[in-house]
Design a protein around this nucleic acid. Structure first.
Length: 283
DNA sequence: GCTAAATGTTGAT
DNA sequence: TCAACCTTTAGCT
């Protein structure tokens, strides 16, 4: 269940552990048999993330585009790779044999001598040519985690729009990588009322949001989690952190705002749930 | 064991 | 604007 930070983290993992190696590719689930056949035996050259999409380059100028969507995930096994995923495995599920049996519906399995990566539930998993890959990248907006990102380009789209900032922030052709949680937390941290139009955002406010978003995303890549509150910051050393304290408003509808104590609100907006505090977010 | 919800996108209405 | 798609898992019983 990924926002941009997860995908960058995954790309990093592939670059660290799989790049330069030849892959046995298969589709245990059977829904990507043809695609897997195209990749089979090829070397992974590198992986790169742009927003929530990952592009993997294989020898022979073959690209694989993977979008995890709402429920997609990679599951790793082999030399120390279990740690890449955020979730810890219980003692009962320690794998004894390598490679392990595919768990659940595995669309694509990439296997080296030492490592295995199993992909399940992706929204998109397709083999592309170089030009098709470029085309897919062109449709994506600015990703703060990429060196080539330009906040001004995103700002000009906000500046021209009457659409609410809550909706604009989710648009991957404007800013790539933000999902429902980063949206909610970014707006809270900026104390911005979510329903105001994009054109109401001034340039300095946007610049500050961009800086904050970059920090949150980088932090997310490092930790594998979206931690946005002061309490979360403080507990980095002390350890224990309650779920309710990890974020200000995301998934906290009806619970007291960490700052003012009033109920956090939620509403359906564009098919997703928007969370915000009407008392704190008045900017 | 079952159900609902989930950090998302696409395409039809 | 809404439903379809795809799969896992948290939170119930």
């Amino acid at each position: 269940m990924p926002e941009g930070h997860t995908v960058h983290r995954l790309a990093q993992a592939f670059n660290d552990q799989f790049a330069g190696k030849h892959m046995d590719a298969s589709s245990p689930q059977g829904r990507f048999v043809d695609g897997a056949a195209l990749l089979d035996g090829h070397k992974l050259v590198r992986a790169e993330a742009h927003g929530k999409q990952m592009f993997m380059l294989f020898s022979g100028a073959i690209w694989l585009r993977v979008h995890l969507g709402l429920y997609g995930m990679w599951r790793f096994a082999g030399d120390g790779l279990e740690k890449i995923g955020r979730r810890r495995r219980g003692p009962a599920e320690q794998e004894q044999t390598f490679p392990p049996e595919p768990r659940g519906a595995v669309r694509l399995r990439l296997l080296t001598g030492l490592h295995v990566a199993d992909l399940s539930g992706p929204t998109a998993c397709e083999v592309l040519s170089t030009s098709e890959k470029s085309l897919a990248m062109q449709r994506l907006g600015e990703d703060p985690l990429r060196k080539d990102s330009d906040p001004d380009k995103a700002f000009s789209k906000f500046h021209a729009s009457r659409t609410s900032i809550a909706l604009l922030l989710m648009r991957q052709d404007i800013v790539a990588g933000i999902g429902n949680i980063y949206r909610a937390e970014l707006l809270f941290r900026a104390r911005l009322e979510p329903h105001q139009p994009g054109r109401a955002i001034t340039e300095p406010v946007w610049q500050a949001m961009w800086v904050d978003l970059s920090k949150l995303l980088k932090d997310g890549v490092k930790t594998g989690r979206i931690l946005t509150t002061e309490k979360a910051d403080r507990s980095r050393q002390s350890g224990a952190l309650r779920r309710d304290d990890m974020n200000y408003v995301a998934h906290r509808a009806g619970r007291p705002c960490h700052i003012c104590g009033n109920d956090v609100l939620s509403e359906a907006l564009g098919g997703r749930t928007l969370y915000w505090c009407a008392t704190c977010q008045i900017g």
